[in-house]
Design a protein around this nucleic acid. Sequence first.
DNA 1: TCACGAATTTAGATCGATCTAAATTCCGGG
DNA 2: CCCGGAATTTAGATCGATCTAAATTCGTGA
Lengths: 342, 342
Amino acid sequence: MAGRPDRLTLADVAERAGVSRATVSLVLRSSPLVAESTRIKVQRILDELGYVYNRSAASMRASRSRTVGLLVPGLSNPFFAELAAGVDQILDEAGLALFLADSNESVAKQERVILRMREHGADGIIICPAVGTTKDLISRLDAWKFPFVQALRHISPQGDYAGADYEIGMDRATEHLIRLGHRRIAFVGGEHMHSAYRERRDGFVACMRRHGLSPDFILKTPLTRQAGMDAVAAVLEQDEAATAAICFNDVVAFGMLLGLSDRGLEPGVDLAVVGFDDVAEASLSRPPLTTVATLPNQIGQDAARLLLRRIADPHGLPERVILPTRLVVRASCGALRSQRVA
Amino acid sequence: MAGRPDRLTLADVAERAGVSRATVSLVLRSSPLVAESTRIKVQRILDELGYVYNRSAASMRASRSRTVGLLVPGLSNPFFAELAAGVDQILDEAGLALFLADSNESVAKQERVILRMREHGADGIIICPAVGTTKDLISRLDAWKFPFVQALRHISPQGDYAGADYEIGMDRATEHLIRLGHRRIAFVGGEHMHSAYRERRDGFVACMRRHGLSPDFILKTPLTRQAGMDAVAAVLEQDEAATAAICFNDVVAFGMLLGLSDRGLEPGVDLAVVGFDDVAEASLSRPPLTTVATLPNQIGQDAARLLLRRIADPHGLPERVILPTRLVVRASCGALRSQRVA
DNA sequence: TCACGAATTTAGATCGATCTAAATTCCGGG
DNA sequence: CCCGGAATTTAGATCGATCTAAATTCGTGA
């Protein structure tokens, strides 16, 4: 602690309580070895003096820091923020502290941050790899024997992973549109080829193929509202215009809703729009957005639980927790005409 | 590091390089004391062996951890996420690691987290106090000699602080509405009495008073879209209905925009609406939202810089960085009729 | 060639906890 | 009242860096 002049140590407490350092240490770790009466006596002194445990010293000797890292590619994306909240919740319950860092989709910063976490002696790391991360990161983590869990995205099938079943989610959403009678459907949004993109696209393609429809109306765009607005033109002004658009995520879908009303068109009537993620705003857009819920908080919790297990048992078999997604039908796909608000 | 079996130490590197531990240590800290030739030789071995610095050991001896904490009351609020991104950026440049925690507006969790950060030997903390935090927290931080900076909210005028000038921002926004001819203006949103609330409300009240208008149309609501939607009724269905509403933040304002269009009313015509924060979506709502930009990323950067200074000089005079806000006039206030989109 | 101050390097103590192995205390039975 | 085993407690080594103070090496002028 930043050169605090006279920090209390175990020895001070021990002396004051009339026991040895070792005993105080046992009390701190609530070991069953110490007698109830001494535990109470020591605890009283501990509180009285306002003793603060020194984890640097502890982790040095015990080679465990009760700290884990979380690396996300963009905190300002509410999706990752929500994931972080889930991770934090589980770790807090377990009494571990969380090192959070944002790679900003930069592989270089990601590299720096991982090193820093190793230096700080983190017991493990939950990592949502930045775009462009190569497989060898996973091999290195392995070689370093650094416990890790991949979340949301994965760059290698090795190791633990927590995520949502994007492929089936997208498949179901596409199926829903096809049932509503759509035949020409566009897949809109996403520019980088990471696992999360691949899975969603594959779900779309698989479903279209299964129904004998062409899955080649795929539009790559940045993941912003603006891009969604701009995409409206590309979707409608085509020799063979689409009647429905299924978006990579809700943000792009919101953009499309805006783009449609700017042109005086009505979402769900002139073009069915479906999003992905079910962010908080989805039920409050006009019209409310049909989307696929992917529960980032939940995924964060699962990732944290996986990591705790991996730390406890470094050699156990890898696990992949893949949460089911849920199609949330609202008005933007045209299914609930009556519920639509003028 | 989680019981890694055979972690390399300074001694290993020293032996391999044919120098003493002390010399290697100096190289690691890039001390000017070591000769260029030895620095190069040692650095080569360091890279070759893939040595990883052990910060636990270092901070124990040096009583500095090159780590700071950031405590926010709700990561899933994009505003705080953005703040965190700003903090992270500055700290990363300075080579410090960030401990991030979310108090979820719970004083109890906040207390737990602060203790954890002290235990981990954080060099300081940036804290955005949870609702209900009492002044004595600040006194305790002081007594512990734990360097801190308050951000966005403050519970005590003591100590460093980084925030935006909410009061003037709200004053200017109110002034803008009055200039547009409004006389009956409602202040909508906010339920907890923290500094951020008080300052915004005071700005509104001061401006109304200055113009001889009544500032008592104040509606407390949760800070959600839903609450904003619901507030529309309360604002319009009053014996003396308001012609303009100025919201605690953009989220509430978005809700009001939705509430208005649900009733077939036009924001900016039937009711002028102004938000606060200028979140990313503000320019993309329909109509685009007039709001006050408060630059959370910037504030995060300033908070981080303040903390770095405070750590370097624990006894320097306290500083308060108060960033100016900027009124961003779009269509929702009715000022830009021509720009409004049908 | 030697002395001397500056530039480098280093031995050994130290930070504050944990861990090991051994010492002490406690208790019930003989 | 002593003994043996269980229950508690403890001394002292240890983790891997930094720091202090002293030793060594270097370069230069006499």
